[in-house]
Design a protein around this nucleic acid. Structure first.
Lengths: 342, 342
DNA sequence: TGTTAGCACTCGACCTTGTAGAGTGCTAAC
DNA sequence: GTTAGCACTCTACAAGGTCGAGTGCTAACA
């Protein structure tokens, strides 16, 4: 364990480096932070800290910058958990009030808020439909050969698709099939709608087994669409303001990675514990972001975890601020979503 | 009018500059293009071309680069209209076949194809709903206080929204109102649904004028959502490969502009003639893209123009290729959309 | 009269060199 | 254990020099 002075010095280095993006020297620390010791002493301590792996040097005679281990210690032991100020909270709540009318807009604006406040890239993973319940499906008329299949969930998500009416089925047949399916499935969560239940339905409707199969196929297809998690991204341009992305090649490879949406969704750790998680530098499993850190948090509706929000940026990020914002989202995004009738 | 040799030289300059992004000198032209004259002669001609405003010099003793006027002349008079090769066309058609299942995916993939082929940013403006016809609206049950309003167009676009049931209206009232509205509006294009018609409907339904007003309000609100043009963007990262965007500040301001979607939609000229249009440099009305060129083309369904595709990039773009691709989209995107049941 | 070779000139790109400044480690004194 | 002093290291930056590509002009040539 580090003694008090070493901790103060490490804290000073991380704090300063986060705000200036410049390596920090002993004299700078002595000047800015009143530790009551001379630069020479600080130099000795810094040599120790470097030996212990908390800070590193780009070359002889440059100041020190925090290592991944240093950031980890900072986040775990030096950062006093802060909450957002009342004023900030009021601002955010007001933002939601003004800018959101659809559910989708809540996600969109959440991404915007996060990236704006933290000056980093934000990710919002929307609820997996599997976690909400099937309410009903309905076929709406379109023309002789096509119909509109509408699937409604208990949370008010509506998905629709224009589909061909399977040959041999009349529109009335479809209505009948829909009614039956609804009677059996209504209220079940999408997770619980398994092939076995679908088989049962098929068995119950002895007539037209083939036709039902087609209809069930359509439902399944709709489910696939539903299940597809959606990801909202915010603040990709903020990236360009960060000094670590001066190098245009770096920006390019990073943006290319961001375009691989499924990859990003995968990067978000399936977190077990319910709260804010910080992943620093090479703790990330994808090499593309190993000089980045990610802070993520779940959000819940009625106590159930339904999605994840995250902030992604260079390891040199303002962990305190980012964590407090995500803490807020963790606690309040569910409320907001509920208010806006998800 | 330029004589034949000047035209050859201008063409050589534009061609070379497009492919190398370096100013072109007289010696380079003499070497690469067999014009049968010496560099000195070419120099004299270039001096003339500069005087006429077709090319310009960044400083004494640099080669020449085309001016906006030069590009304009190139596009109008030097570029022989080319078509895409059969092989390329087959590739594109195959791409659509493999990657598109929803209508939205067609737009998404069109943007991707355009940016991939042209190495520039692509814009796909999707059909304005105003240009297709209202088919019907329907209220679907949700819960005691809310209903799902579904609006269907003749092209198969379906938009839905969960709305509060206005106090005083029963679900049956809504059904009745929907029926009446459908009877009056079905088949009308959204453009033709004007306030006057809505007033008429209001007058016809003498009972419950207040309630109808509310319902019409909801429809109008849905229309607003509908009318909102959607814009698909592709290849923003391609930008970073272009040497004119080495400067990170430039990239940033450009990307910021791209985020203003409505602005972009506005930049696309409301074109009257039906074909491929090229806008070069300061011909663009927005100052943010005055060192860029834009090539745009309409696409049609059943002979009716429904949307626009465009490619945006530095003035130094491969106009021949870009124009041929957009010519292709102009002629075939409608077909693709039709096949995928728009 | 149009074309060409030759020449002096210009300017950016690139390299070298020198200097200032920030920072370090070590040592000796407090 | 702490500190002042000192020699040392390394980067950033500016100044100066050279190279090469390109130009315009002039005089000679077909």
């Amino acid at each position: 364990m580090l003694d008090k002075r070493k901790r103060s010095i490490l804290q000073a280095i991380v704090d300063d480096y986060i705000s200036t993006a410049e390596p920090i020297g002993s004299r700078t620390i002595a000047r800015k932070h009143d530790l009551g010791v001379s630069p020479a002493t600080i130099r000795n301590e810094m040599a120790d800290l470097e030996l212990l792996g908390y800070i590193e040097q780009l070359h002889t005679s440059s100041g020190r910058i925090p290592s991944a281990k240093g950031y980890r210690f900072y986040v775990d032991s030096l950062l006093s958990p802060t909450r957002m100020s009342e004023r900030e909270i009021a601002l955010i709540k007001n933002w939601y009030q003004e800018k959101t009318r659809h559910v989708e807009e809540v996600f969109q604006e959440t991404a915007k808020i996060l990236s704006k406040i933290t000056s980093n890239i934000s990710l919002v993973l929307v609820p997996q439909v599997t976690q909400c319940a099937f309410k009903y499906l309905k076929f709406l008329p379109f023309d002789d050969s096509r119909t509109i299949l509408v699937v409604v969930t208990d949370t008010g998500f509506v998905e629709n698709k224009v589909i061909d009416i399977p040959t041999g089925l009349s529109f009335n047949d479809l209505q009948r099939i829909a009614e039956h399916i609804n009677r059996r499935l209504s209220g079940l969560s999408f997770e619980n709608i398994e092939l076995s239940i679908l088989r049962e339905i098929q068995n119950e409707m002895l007539i037209d087994v083939d036709l039902l199969e087609t209809a069930l196929g359509i439902l399944k297809q709709a489910l696939v669409v539903e299940k597809n998690e959606r990801l909202y991204l915010g603040g990709t341009t903020q990236l360009l303001s960060q000094p670590e992305f001066k190098n245009i090649e770096k920006v390019k490879s990073f943006l290319d990675m961001l375009e691989e949406e499924h990859l990003l969704a995968d990067i978000l750790q399936k977190q077990k514990n319910d709260g804010v998680i910080v992943t620093i530098g090479d703790e990330n499993k994808y090499s593309g972001i190993q000089d980045c850190s990610m802070v993520q948090a779940t959000y819940r509706i009625d106590g159930q975890v339904v999605g994840t929000v995250a902030v992604l940026g260079p390891t040199r990020m303002d962990y305190g601020k980012v964590m407090s914002v995500l803490e807020f989202m963790h606690n309040h995004l569910g409320e907001v979503l509920k208010k806006y009738k998800i």
